[in-house]
Design a protein around this nucleic acid. Structure first.
Length: 549
RNA sequence: GACCCGUUGGUGAAGUGGUUUAACACGCCACCCUCUCAAGGUGGUAUUCGUGGGUUCGAAACCCAUACGGGUUACCA
């Protein structure tokens, strides 16, 4: 009996060869230097900000070089699969306008690209073709170690302070005669297929990572599992080898946590004589928790989930800007020089990326977002809130739909000027900042005139409304009217004079405008009062004064 | 325990032997402007480069130790 018999026993249906596959997935015909990148999530949960960093980098590198960015669904761990996860990833990719050039959704009902299937569970035969080859070559073997046996190996290794894993004399089945292996399989024993490593832990090799530079590792000598017994699917490492080779990936962008797997991947690629892709190991996104710094976690940190940004209503461009600043810190300077360019025009450099973890700074995001929104047109802001409210605030959505022009006027306050007003950080706070402009919300509000005596307030408002308010006034005229009233009622119309001699007056123009402001909005802090009154219009102004009087 | 990686302010960071008593941006503080708020303007804050030793005329930058932090060590990705 030969290794071939063993291979055929395990994979009776695999008839193709690696050469067949190579032919089927020929090297891509792209221009010199074009990068092929991919986002390869496992559908085990909601998208994390760290994954998003990777996606943005993948996308930029592909676009920078006129290459390909594709999506691959890594669903080899079916036990951990979460319903809707891949749909959510698709949703995020669409929201952020980073749609992949090649993908496969809904189990190939919707697919694009010639290097698929792009769902790993549909690629079983491809993986098995490679594994069968290894079996025949004697570079892989079935391993019959049970979970209990492995646990006890691990324990004894830990006790003896040895490296943990299946290697050397711990690899009990690596030299099992073919006959015995066949017998065990025929007897129905469970097995996993392991790589028969040829590495030597005492030998080092150098490896170049695009973000971290030259690294040195000991060779891998672990007989790592390459195919699971449970479902015949490959482990991550093996799928990475097969897929990224066959899909002709040129650049792999992934988190730092993968760095320690490099020796394994290095050996795998070497075993087949395939060229390794280039790697960009990106920083982990960390979070400050009191004095400690730790990996940001979906469980404890709401901002770790991409859904957080959507719920808050950050414009997607702002989130990308913030992420790009983490990716390359010279991005901001570039942006200053190219205010209107698409972020994909920025020339991303993996070398400039920090290799240690990065803290994601929400203050910074807020600042970026605030600036971003301040440069939008009133129409764009309106569309932004409208879209956000449609899913997150139905009531507000209806109101917005009812008053498009009016709403846009509100968003236009101090907007069309060289240095626009910056008070909206995200769409969800627009309502908090403008609700009083809408009668629907205003009608239930209550007043608080603070320390001002009620009689004085009534008198002042009456006077103002009857004698000084002119709907058609320009801003200057409007302001002069208020000043006149100040003089008449014994309030200082000039702040300098008031500060020099406060006892001479009942109060100042600040008090007067404040009272008017509160009567019209119930708030003591609003944007420019003149603009507010103009937008409210004479009817609302009258109603609001009357409501109070 | 083993193997890797990292360590510049409150945050992201620039920086690869001398123009650095460390750029820029965010934050924070003060003042100015001002009908409040926001914005804007001006100024300020803070790192002496984890620590110790060495190399050098000269180090944040090079070397060696050490501490600390992080990652990996699954039939999870």
């Amino acid at each position: 009996m030969s290794r071939e018999d063993l291979a055929n026993l395990i994979f009776p249906n695999i008839t193709k060869t690696i050469a067949d596959l190579e032919e089927c997935y020929a090297p891509r015909n792209l221009k010199e230097g074009a990068m092929v990148t991919r986002y390869a999530p496992s559908p085990t949960g909601f998208m994390h900000i760290g994954n998003f960093l990777a996606v943005v980098i993948d996308y930029v590198m592909a676009k920078n070089s006129q290459g390909i960015f594709y999506l691959r669904n890594e669903d080899t761990d079916q036990a951990r699969e979460v319903d809707g996860a891949i749909e959510y990833i698709r949703h995020v990719l669409e929201n952020y306008h980073m749609e992949p050039d090649e993908y496969e959704y809904l189990d190939s009902q919707e697919t694009k690209g010639n290097y698929g299937p792009y769902i790993q569970s549909e690629r079983k035969e491809i993986y098995q073709t490679f594994i069968k080859h290894l079996l025949i070559e004697g570079k892989a073997y079935p391993c019959f170690l049970t979970q209990e046996e492995m646990d006890s190996i691990r324990k004894s290794q830990a006790r003896d302070k040895r490296r943990i894993g299946i290697y050397g004399r711990f690899a009990k089945y690596r030299d099992l005669p073919v006959e015995e292996a066949i017998q065990k399989i025929q007897a129905g024993e469970k097995y996993t297929i392991r790589l028969k490593s040829s590495g030597d832990f005492n030998r080092k090799f150098k490896f170049n990572d695009l973000a971290n530079g030259e690294l040195e590792f000991p060779e891998n000598d672990l007989d790592i599992p390459i195919m699971k017994s449970s479902n015949g699917l490959p482990t991550y490492h093996f799928a990475h080898l097969v897929d990224d080779h066959l899909m002709r990936t040129t650049h792999v962008v992934r988190g730092q946590e993968w760095i320690s797997s490099i020796p394994i991947h290095y050996e795998l690629f070497k075993t087949f004589g395939f060229k390794m892709p280039k790697y960009v190991h990106i920083p982990l996104i960390l979070k400050k928790d009191g004095e400690k710094v730790r990996k940001i976690s979906k469980r404890y940190d709401p901002e770790a989930k991409m859904s957080y940004y959507e719920e808050k209503g950050y414009p997607y461009q702002a989130v990308i800007e913030a992420i790009m600043t983490i990716a390359n810190s010279n991005y901001e300077a570039w942006r200053e020089g190219h205010p209107d360019a698409d972020f994909t025009e920025f020339n991303f450099s993996p070398k400039k990326m920090s290799s240690s973890g990065a803290l994601f700074d929400l203050d910074k995001l807020d600042n970026i977002s605030k600036n971003y929104i301040s440069h939008l047109t009133k129409e764009e802001v309106y569309e932004g809130v409208l879209a956000w409210s449609q899913t997150y605030d139905k009531e507000f959505y209806e109101i917005l739909k009812k008053y498009p022009e009016y709403s846009m006027q509100i968003y236009n306050i101090e907007r069309e000027q060289k240095k626009p007003r910056k008070d909206y950080v995200y769409y969800s706070e627009i309502k908090e900042k403008t609700w009083y402009m809408y009668d629907e919300y205003f009608k239930d509000s209550t007043y608080d005139f603070f320390e001002y005596p009620e009689e004085e307030v009534r008198f002042m408002l009456k006077t103002y409304y009857q004698e000084y308010y002119q709907e058609s006034d320009s801003e200057e005229e409007w302001f002069n009217q208020i000043k006149k009233m100040c003089d008449q009622l014994g309030y200082a119309s000039n702040m300098k004079e008031y500060k020099e001699n406060p006892t001479k007056y009942k109060g100042s123009i600040v008090d007067v405008t404040n009272i008017i402001r509160i009567a019209l909005t119930t708030l003591s802090m609003t944007p420019n009062l003149y603009d507010i009154m103009k937008i409210l219009g004479p009817e609302r102004v009258m109603n609001r004064f009357q409501k109070f009087l």
